[in-house]
Computed example of a mutant assay.
Amino acid sequence: MNNLDSYDPSGVGQVNGNLFGLPFDYDSARTIVFGVPWEVTVSYNPGTAAAPQQILDASPQLDLYDFDNPQGWQGGIYMPPIDLDILAKNNYYRQQAALIIDRLEQGKSLDLEPDLNPVLAEINQAGKDINQWLYDRTQAAMKAGKKVGVIGGDHSVPLGYMQALADRYPDYGILHVDAHSDLRDAYEGFEFSHASIMFNALKISQISKLVQVGIRDVSKVEIDTIERSNGRAIAYYDSLLKQQMYSGKTWLSICQEAIAHLPQQVYISFDADGLDPKLCPSTGTPVPGGLELEQAFCLCREVIRSGREIIGFDVCEVGNAEWDGNVGARIVYKLINLMNLQNAK
């Protein structure tokens, strides 16, 4: 597939089944991006399981010149075919999870007739299986010398990749862009809930720091978790960020302060609902407020400008709509180009 001699990066984007229409395959690409169509535990708007396909479909519309890494595409990007077996399992378990969510929202016990506890156990096992699936594939890609990105699905998706990174890096941090802290313990009974991804991440001892930016829809128990973490988790709440900016503090200085908390190796976990909802209105749990796209890019750019290394990323909670896919594709492309800047220098 790799035929760079005849490829025109300024030409019409090719619809060839690969991200951004690029002429690379698994072997020739430096960066592998796994799409994981999984949103079993989504508790508000469904549709994020379609995000990998929406982002793939929108991606050839992007121009490839990136101001941070103008030749970044030449390193090669490849997205393996979306696993339709995972999508089928998602659709099945999503229906089962909806029964549990509906029961809980009515204030009723799962022990009522019919008993839904076996269903909950089955869903939790399916979550473990997805984690293992992603762990195996990201581990294999890294062993082959690849950089790796992940597209969800809901925000439960990247845990297996985080676990694979922990086998490679004895100390790394997470830069987390989100409207939510995602620090709930087994939200709604789901061990691998989208609202529990950072709670589960903090079980990984190699993750020494979690820096969250844009948080604006948060529970008391999550705030307590942050305050009891002895500085391991640090939150930049959206309302307080805005108040600082209204008082004259620059966004760049806020970004530099946030990044200064992180260790040398940094993983970026980017939830689309961290942005202003006008940018991804079909996200699973939209919240008013949030970041502009260039604000988020400025934050991620400061990881590199500070001398740190981006070791991986995920982009999750992009909605099932063409506009959301377009924005999601731009986030994926920017994070790939920033991640590969170390190789470009």
Rank of each mutant, 00 (worst) to 15 (best):
Y237L: 12
Q244E: 12
E191S: 10
K242V: 15
I226Q: 00
Y237I: 00
G160W: 05
I174K: 04
S156C: 14
G153C: 00
I130K: 11
S219H: 09
A144T: 02
I207K: 01
S156E: 13
I207D: 10
M245L: 15
L159W: 04
L202T: 06
K220C: 06
K209G: 02
A164Q: 01
Q206W: 09
Y161E: 02
Y187W: 15
S193F: 07
F190P: 15
A164V: 01
I204F: 03
A186T: 04
Y169D: 10
M162E: 15
A140H: 07
V148C: 04
E188A: 05
I174Q: 13
K203S: 14
H176A: 07
G145D: 12
A201N: 00
W133A: 03
E188V: 08
S219P: 06
V150W: 10
M198W: 01
V177S: 00
G189A: 11
Q163L: 14
I215Q: 11
M142K: 02
T225M: 14
M198Q: 10
Y161H: 07
A195P: 11
T138V: 11
Y237N: 01
S193P: 08
T225K: 11
L175G: 04
D154Q: 00
A140D: 13
L241V: 05
S229L: 02
D238H: 12
A235M: 15
A166Y: 07
V157G: 07
K143W: 05
G189V: 03
I215V: 12
M162H: 15
L159F: 14
R216G: 14
S219G: 02
F190W: 13
P158V: 05
G145S: 11
N230W: 00
F192Q: 11
D154F: 02
H176Q: 12
L159N: 06
D154Y: 02
Q139R: 01
Q206T: 15
L175D: 11
M245R: 09
G145M: 06
E191W: 01
